[in-house]
Amino acid sequence: MSLPTKTRQWILASHPTGLPTYGTRTDTFALETHDLPALSANQILVQTLYLSNDPAQRGWISPPSQIDPKRLYVPPVQLGHAMRARGLGRVLASQNGNFAAGDLVQATLNWVEYAVLDAGDPAAGVRKASELPGGLSVTHYLGALGGTGLTAWYGLVEVVGCRSGERVVVSGAAGATGSMVVQIAKGVVGASYVVGIAGSEEKCRWVESLGADKCLNYKSATFEADLKEACGDGVDVYFDNVGGQILDHMLANMKQHGRIAACGAITSYNGEAVLPMKNYFDVVSMRLQIKGFIVLDFMAKAAETVGKLVGAVQEGKIRVGEENETVVQTAFEEIPGTWLRLFEGGNQGKLVTKL
């Protein structure tokens, strides 16, 4: 079989101030065809099979006037460059002794059909994707047993030090990270009471099936009252995936010396107006701790933690399967459209693009 010499790729054509768009040069993303370079020493040619979709990608493409690039934890995507994304791919050719044609790999592949990667460069993050136990799909390397599972573990266990017997609330509980937080809190840490927050009654029932004692629909007209009732005299830990008004509500429902893991703020990623916080003084009066974190802070022990996650799956403490991810068969021309489903709540668990 002859090897490809060209690749299509979605490039960042302009910085979005609102919801990103795609298709033409006047949109956020534009589709282009580029020549592939010949392989050099240590490089591999990879065909993209699956792409990870993550809310954090939105911050990487915001205009400098909206987010100072110096305050981002990774460099922003540059105009004219392929949109950055982690993915899974098949090695088609190799000039690196550690990889052979046919190997399945995890890497920063970006929104491209084919990629030439320096497999020795740590920035590319290339590593083999071995088979998972119990016949689990390798796509879980992009979610429950990858970056999102690690984010859930570190935020809950290390950042806020959740302990057995504590009371926990998780927003975005039906999403990739939140659904793992619910399970780690209940099944691994031993939290006595876990409340999830999600965007529909159907999602709430799924979150409860994962072990949450209760899940609340934030779109309900009675949400604020329901949350107060569910939290009772207060909770010890809040894992925040959304920011905005839900965070404000939670400030008024924390115990004294409560801890908040600030993981995400998807409610404001597309330039939506951020409501003023009414309950900020609770941070002072209740001596709350709010600690932001990035999963990259802990990557030195990622392999060890993935082992713990896999072990918890094998012991039945965490449930991972098809229900933990939404895998969308996608034509290459529609990659941006699948990613945009993140901002519509169009996924249960991890949202994965399958090409």
Rank of each mutant, 00 (worst) to 15 (best):
S65K: 11
V327S: 12
S179N: 05
E325Q: 13
N347W: 04
T139M: 09
G143F: 01
A152K: 07
P122C: 04
D282G: 04
D27S: 13
K219Q: 12
E322H: 09
G120S: 15
A303M: 07
T5S: 15
G187E: 03
S192F: 11
W111F: 05
A198L: 01
G80F: 02
G120P: 11
G59F: 09
P122Q: 07
K219G: 06
K354R: 14
G321Y: 04
L45Q: 03
V328Q: 01
I67M: 03
P63R: 02
Q289H: 12
V91D: 10
G264A: 11
P55D: 04
V169T: 08
V352G: 04
Y280E: 13
V295R: 04
G59K: 14
V188P: 08
P69V: 02
G143V: 05
D240F: 02
L72A: 09
V274G: 11
A230G: 13
Q95H: 12
H249V: 02
M83C: 11
E304C: 07
D248C: 13
P64I: 05
R287D: 08
M254Q: 12
H140L: 01
H81S: 14
G18M: 01
T5F: 13
G321L: 06
K301S: 10
Y73K: 10
T33C: 04
F223Y: 11
G143L: 10
V160W: 08
F239V: 09
G135A: 00
R319L: 07
T21W: 06
L39R: 10
L340C: 01
T7R: 02
F281N: 14
A212P: 05
N324V: 00
F29D: 08
K203H: 10
A100I: 10
N270S: 13
G165C: 06
G143W: 07
I44F: 06
G59V: 09
A82D: 03
R71F: 15
G125F: 01
I61F: 00
E272I: 07
R90F: 01
R205F: 05
A82H: 04
L247E: 01
L288W: 07
S164F: 02
